[in-house]
Design a protein around this nucleic acid. Structure first.
Lengths: 350, 350
DNA sequence: CCGCAGGCTGCACACGTTTGCAACAGGAAG
DNA sequence: CTTCCTGTTGCAAACGTGTGCAGCCTGCGG
């Protein structure tokens, strides 16, 4: 008969009330809701009955205060334009939920403030943090580590940070795409990507460049950064057409850009793809397989990236400063690169 | 000198430690971090200095225990395929973050378990819950309301639920699209949508049907449910072509479906759009404006839906059982419906 | 009947905050 | 010098839970 009904919306019941109704102690109800705790079947039933009548749900906030585990993992999204990342987000959400963790979603501020987002998550004492497509400052990263939150960084460099990096094999991708284009006979090649400071993009480009250079007779005629998304891709193509020599193959760092380039070539200039020009994307978004496109692109192992990230985050004994985990990506050949007709083809028969 | 350095990762410092270092009481440090609390400039500085040295961050979990506000809002995502919803998610994330709320993201379970997700959120004592494209059972919804969490349901029916519904004006959309097609001279019209049980879809279809029927000489020749996404849209078109009479206009409940239909018509059958057939989508996703498509579609007021949802969620005195809030949508005419050449056009000049 | 073991149970402390209340300091007014 | 008032400060009681420890009860063997 304490001051219970103060106001109108104080309503979620407490373990105390359940205990009272069930005629047991608070400990008993706590133990009832704790797996493999010592409680007799009789009291367990009494407690459950009372809990049901009161609509009792344990307050995980209070619980986490004492267990020092919030069962929340934070995720900071650095990139939203690309549908690819929505897929990833969905996967994280579902798989974490399946393991009884909840996801706290933050967006990098317009000021690029990953650090402030990170600090926010620390205030909630999250058990771990996933950064997709963004990087914090090393200081704040260390601060997180010191506070006991494990850090996973997807698709970005983790140099001198107490974090485990996970991503696709950038160098492999650069090499494979270069080889594909070389084998198909393209010679004047353009490379276009977005943010020039992203390390993984640099690695990919570098491997691409090296492979092209090693071929002897092909070369990179354009190496452009700062173009991201469909519209910018399409606009870029206009520049490319004015360029001398005009590229006969374009490797884009995202499918969205590639589709813009593709439409620019076919619609704005009547260029025949893949005969006169090849276009390769990255990410294999759904639209890449649509009728008018059939874009040859690189499929990223997002499922495995997600699984590995969650593993690194949740397993108790994971080393938190090992080498980054890289996963092989696979090229999915559709119709924007002409079919190779050399020995590589004959070797496979057909 | 208590048992502080037990283990290796106990590290986030507490207000107690800061107080000790600053030579003040715990209350003082608490007040330093509480806006407009009574604390002198001198102690404030001492506290801030000590906090900085220790890397202290207030534990919002503990705070929320006493303030009874978690500053977390839950969001349950019922639909992931459509890029439209990623946009919405991003908006929610950014705008909530700007108002100092955090977003806890849940996905409806594969069993369609919205209820279990809701209960989970209740355990975290979230301040409010947003459901996008999914509905809970009325009982659980009531349970939430009783526990003091406000409920906002986007794009779904809220009949006899203690929740505020927010969405686009379904009937207006149905009517407007019907009128557009009628004015453009299409007569055999197909209506295709996804989940047949979604109330807002039913309302839209019904308004569409009524408007078509009122015209006298046009009619609905196909009214198909259960088709969702690009592939199913494209497959649906094959059925439609076999149908007698063959539709000369198709209104799809999502852009993705519409793009599939469009590709099916043009690529698989060589149908000329919009001359021989019109296609209209819903959602105005980025791909709708891409070169090969130029889809005529309905632009949903997502920005306003987000704002209204947040307002309804966060304003203290919002009525939580008012009429649903509906927002007008606007048709964006591109190139998959032939330009109208009747009086409506002449009335506007040109 | 006694002793003992083992399973349940309750007490009470801990987790890291906020906040009402009372005490206190210091200055201004009388 | 006294009185009052205002602005700061610390004490201690919450918030709702988990959990070590000690005690209880029951049943069994001697």
């Amino acid at each position: 008969m304490k001051a219970r009904s103060r106001g109108l919306s104080r309503v979620s019941s407490t373990s105390h009330e359940v205990a009272e109704l069930a005629g047991v102690s608070r400990s008993a109800v706590s133990r009832t809701f704790t797996p493999d705790a010592s409680v007799s079947e009789a009291t367990r039933r009494k407690v459950l009955k009372a809990a049901a009548k009161l609509g009792y749900q344990p307050n995980v906030i209070a619980r986490s205060l004492i267990t020092r585990r919030s069962r929340i993992v934070g995720l900071i999204m650095g990139e939203w334009e690309n549908p690819f990342y929505a897929t990833m987000l969905r996967g994280f959400s579902e798989k974490l939920q399946a393991r009884d963790y909840q996801l706290m979603l933050l967006t990098r501020g317009p000021d690029g403030g990953v650090d402030s987002a990170l600090r926010l998550l620390m205030q909630y004492r999250v058990d771990g943090i996933i950064l997709v497509s963004c990087v914090p400052s090393p200081q704040v990263a260390r601060q997180c580590a010191r506070a006991g939150a494990r850090l996973v960084i997807v698709n970005r460099d983790t140099a001198d940070m107490p974090a485990v990096g996970i991503g696709a094999d950038a160098q492999g991708i650069g090499r494979d795409v270069a080889e594909l284009l070389l084998r198909a006979g393209y010679r004047n090649i353009a490379l276009v990507r977005g943010d020039p400071s992203v390390v993984v993009g640099i690695e990919r480009s570098e491997a691409f460049r090296v492979t092209i250079a090693a071929s002897g007779d092909a070369r990179i005629v354009i190496n452009q950064t700062g173009v991201v998304g469909y519209d910018q891709g399409r606009r870029f193509l206009h520049e490319a057409m004015r360029h001398d020599p005009r590229p006969d193959a374009i490797f884009c760092s995202s499918d969205l850009t590639a589709l813009g380039v593709l439409d620019g070539a076919r619609i704005d200039f009547g260029v025949s793809v893949p005969d006169q020009m090849a276009v390769v994307g990255l990410g294999d978004i759904p639209a890449a397989s649509w009728g008018p496109y059939a874009l040859t692109t690189v499929q990223l192992p997002v499922e495995r990236i997600i699984d590995a990230s969650i593993e690194a985050l949740l397993t108790p004994a994971a080393p938190d400063r090992g080498e980054p985990i890289v996963m092989a990506a696979t090229i999915v050949q559709r119709a924007t690169v002409r079919a190779v007709s050399d020995l590589a083809d004959r070797a496979h028969g057909s």
